[in-house]
């Protein structure tokens, strides 16, 4: 059953940046966009098992630190080689200064 889990405080992530969040043996990436919205995806790249939180956020793109594969972190869409498989995304809300993500 899906539940809302607190990932971090809203101020923990800089604008246009990403942070790693581990929960129950899983790893996620939580993003703050340049227009101050929050998003969440699986934490590992779909090409190889590399943490996206070490990558670079540019507008609505997260670039993987290993081979520079790019995803749209808002939709999870893979944007071309070497990433071919989309990222799973998760609903996010900000409540009382906390970033919550909905995880099954």
């Amino acid at each position: 059953m899906a539940e809302w889990i607190e990932a971090c405080a809203a101020g923990d992530i800089d604008e246009e940046d990403v942070m790693r969040f581990d929960h129950a043996g899983r790893t996620f990436a939580v993003y703050r966009s340049p227009d101050d919205e929050y998003f969440a995806t699986d934490g590992l790249c779909t090409h190889e098992r590399v943490h996206l939180a070490d990558g670079l956020v540019m507008d609505d793109i997260i670039e993987c630190p290993k081979h520079n594969g790019r995803f749209n972190y808002k939709t999870g869409a893979a944007k071309g080689a070497p990433v071919c498989v989309n990222l799973k995304t998760y609903p996010v809300k900000v409540t009382a200064g906390k970033v919550l993500i909905e995880i099954e």
């Binding site: 090409h47 190889e48 290993k66 081979h67 080689a81 070497p82």
Partner: peptide
């Protein structure tokens, strides 16, 4: 195409 993938492997 071939070299984009071979270079990804070189980095892995």
């Amino acid at each position: 195409v071939v070299w984009r993938w071979s270079h990804a492997r070189h980095h892995t």
